[in-house]
Design a binder for these strands. Structure first.
Length: 501
RNA sequence: GCUGAUAUAGUGUAGUCCGGCCAAUCAUGUCGGCCUCUCACGCCGACGACUGGGGUUCGAAUCCCCAUAUCAGCACCA
């Protein structure tokens, strides 16, 4: 029976089966969320202050932000500073300024170090209900037992014994490494990662910038407690947390809480860019990198310095989405996203790389008026006065060739033993077009400002228009070269950072 | 070793849950053309992918199995 025939038969037998399931309409942006309440969603961005934020962090930050903007609700920045060994005062400041730069919709900032008493109290409850025990095995012994699905002796302690040991632990009777609190899960769970993992530890001789403690919760505990108490409805995090989601389920179950909806996005590798905090720190110490904003790094500070707009980064990250597939972050895609934002607003200027001073004889004074932005004439023009001597990019000087000096006039280049000889060749653009003359940027000798263009491959020395000096912090387009952020400028020298073409 | 996950063009992504409207979406990229006093922007066109093998089915990117590859976890880090 062919499909048409079958359809006809079905129509007679059971017309209701012909009702098609509604396919979801194609939406732009990320997939819709389930379980959205009337108040919207409550989500979080939870960095730990061990270094500056980088491109990897921006993915989590923007994915969460996307949904908070879409559904309303709350966006909590939760600073996970429960490991005193790798946090510093400076890191908090960097983190906050980075969060600020991202431009996300922050409702609240919560420090876990302010919540130690909460963790202690929930831990005590957990022990009291028999959900956790104090373990005095050394880590290696425990690991061997665990790997063989064997309980350690501490697991049999009574609740009273555990509560008493917990008090001793808090009182400072035990030292680092001597005792830990373990969650009682399932010692013969097929996944070794699930078996009786630690939830509290002792850290001594390391002062915390924000609290005075020696007993610290491990992330699975503090995260579970906070996600619940802060009312998270949805959690987006990397897939390195897949096992943690399952581990935290045990804590939720003990307390009778309901877990939020989780999404785990995949690994993102970013070309040859350095992202690891320790590697960056080492590179800075050795002088290989100039600082956290060195343009060879993948920090937000570095990409901000190069003139990427947070909005472009946001768009690039939303485009990547929350898939679990491992991906290669592509600079090309970020370049395109940034260009879309920056092109309409960036003022145009001439930058002459590797400049060659040329004299053009027998021409009267000309003044060129190139547009500041050809897509927005209202922005006006700059003006460049030609009086005989100009700089031209060395790369454009070839033997016997006509060049169109942009917005000025045509010249013919001749190479002699004494260098390049330039000859005025009329004002007509049509003539230049007819000759397929290359249109090039140029600068009057008297108006050229020294300009260092920093690129990841090195510094390009050149000269630029004086107008650039008023563009500090802005992104401009050096015509025929690309977009760059003006990092600093005096009347005699400009420092610019290259973003992309 | 154990546990769990993922696999669509150069890159990213939609479609996979609930098989047919998918000879597979969109963006980026590359190439060609148009526009233009920038190699920018804009416009037009072309290129380019369902990891492999079995199975189920009238029909598979979609469901099942196997293989392969990659990733994550198995810390008193997060």
């Amino acid at each position: 029976m062919d499909p048409d025939e079958r359809r006809t038969r079905l129509e007679l037998l059971a017309p209701e089966l012909l009702e098609k399931k509604e396919k979801k309409k194609r939406e732009t942006g990320l997939r819709a969320l389930d379980n959205v309440g009337e108040e919207g969603v409550v989500m979080r961005f939870a960095p730990n202050p061990s270094g500056p934020l980088h491109l990897g962090h921006s993915r989590a930050a923007y994915l969460n932000d996307y949904y908070i903007r879409k559904y309303g609700g709350k966006y909590i920045i939760r600073i996970e500073d429960t490991d005193p060994k790798r946090i510093t005062e400076e890191n908090y400041q960097m983190l906050l300024s980075d969060v600020d730069w991202l431009g996300i919709e922050v409702s609240d900032i919560v420090y876990q170090s302010d919540r130690m008493d909460i963790y202690y109290s929930y831990c005590e409850q957990l022990i009291a209900m028999g959900g956790a025990y104090l373990c005095r095995c050394d880590p290696e012994t425990f690991r061997d037992l665990k790997n063989n699905k064997k309980e350690c002796p501490c697991r049999d302690q009574t609740i009273e014994e555990n509560l008493s040991l917990w008090k001793d632990m808090l009182a400072g009777i035990y030292h680092e490494g001597q005792i830990t609190v373990r969650l009682k899960t399932d010692i013969s769970h097929p996944d070794p990662a699930m078996r009786d993992f630690s939830i509290f530890r002792i850290v001594e001789n390391t002062s915390h910038p924000r609290c005075d403690a020696h007993v610290y919760p491990l992330m699975n505990f503090s995260v579970a407690v906070d996600d619940h108490l802060l009312g998270m409805t949805h959690v987006i995090r990397g897939k390195d947390h897949i096992a943690n989601t399952r581990r935290q389920k045990y804590i939720y179950d003990y307390f009778g809480w309901e877990q939020p909806t989780y999404f785990h996005y995949g690994r993102m590798s970013i070309g040859d860019i350095v992202l690891s905090t320790s590697a960056m720190k080492a590179g800075i110490a050795s002088g290989e990198y100039s600082g956290w904003d060195d343009i060879h790094l993948g920090t937000l500070k570095a990409i901000a310095r190069r003139g990427f707009s947070p909005e472009a980064l946001r768009n690039a990250m939303i485009d990547i989405g929350i898939g679990q597939t491992d991906i290669n972050f592509s600079w090309e895609n970020l370049y395109a996203a940034n260009k879309a934002i920056v092109d309409p607003i960036a003022n145009r200027y001439f930058f002459v790389p590797d400049p060659v001073l040329c004299h053009i004889p027998d021409v009267s004074e000309h003044i060129a008026h190139p547009l500041k932005n050809p897509n927005d004439e209202a922005k006006g023009t700059r003006s460049l006065t030609f009086t005989g001597d100009i700089y031209l990019p060395r790369d454009e000087l070839e033997d016997d060739r006509m060049l169109r000096l942009k917005d000025l006039f045509n010249v013919r280049v001749k190479k002699t033993d004494d260098g390049f000889f330039l000859e005025y060749s009329g004002d007509s653009l049509d003539v230049a077009r007819a000759e397929h003359a290359q249109i090039v940027q140029w600068l009057p000798k008297d108006m050229a400002v020294r300009c260092m263009l920093h690129t990841p491959e090195g510094i390009i020395e050149g000269v630029c228009e004086p107008g650039v000096c008023g563009e500090t912090d802005a992104v401009v387009q050096f015509e025929r070269v690309g977009f760059a952020r003006i990092d600093s400028a005096s009347e005699t020298e400009v420092s610019a950072y290259f973003a992309h073409k």
